[in-house]
């Protein structure tokens, strides 16, 4: 694959704990933006940012429309909106109908990011109890990007990583503990 330019991450049930482990393990020199879509069910994304910022090696902020995804920063999708990316790397929001009962939807984020970053994108699907993310990860792979899926056996909720494996397949299928080291290896110079 090309040198990665961005990382997108999707998770649902069990996602908060999984994100804590992932974000605590990232190399603080990570040059790429990391964009996260998590169905937390929380009303506000501010709380999630705060919880994750406590353990993350990188700053954690809400993704703001019309502003660029910045390298070395974790951007979270706001609740109630789909998060997309434009060609110039800036975020866009939409209130289009839910996808797989979800808004934000991982499929929507991954699909938009795949169109922009193509071979230079890494998609990561973690724990979750529904199948959102599988189609998005397929789009990432079709555009030549790299797919990482948490081993279903290792996930708090297996359905989401299992659906991702079934529909999209993966370049790497690893336990949660191994995701951050893998990203560091693929992404850091």
């Amino acid at each position: 694959m090309k040198k990665p330019e961005a990382i997108v991450v999707g998770c649902s049930a069990g996602g908060l704990e999984a994100l804590k482990i992932l974000l605590a393990g990232l190399d603080p020199r990570l040059p790429q933006p990391l964009v996260v879509c998590s169905h937390t069910g929380a009303d506000t994304v501010e709380l999630l940012c705060e919880l994750l910022a406590r353990v993350s090696t990188l700053p954690v902020v809400e993704a703001i429309e019309r502003t660029p995804a910045r390298g070395g920063v974790v951007h979270l999708a706001p609740s109630g909106y789909h998060l997309l990316v434009e060609d110039d790397g800036c975020f866009a929001l939409s209130t289009d109908p839910r996808v797989s009962h979800s808004r934000p939807s991982i499929d929507v984020l991954f699909g938009a990011a795949a169109d922009v970053w193509r071979q230079a994108l890494i998609g990561v699907v973690l724990t979750g109890a529904n199948t959102d993310g599988a189609k998005g990860l397929l789009q990432v792979r079709r555009q030549g990007g790299c797919a990482i899926v948490q081993c279903p056996a290792d996930a708090m909720a297996k359905a989401m990583p299992q659906a991702a494996l079934d529909i999209a397949g993966a370049d790497y299928c690893v336990p949660l503990d191994a995701v951050a080291p893998l990203l560091n290896r693929l992404c850091c110079p």
Binding site: L84, V85, E86, D87, S94, D96, V108, A112, D115
Partner: peptide, 8 residues
């Protein structure tokens, strides 16, 4: 905005 337009 192109990303949403394309989806639609």
């Amino acid at each position: 905005a192109p990303a949403s337009l394309k989806r639609r």
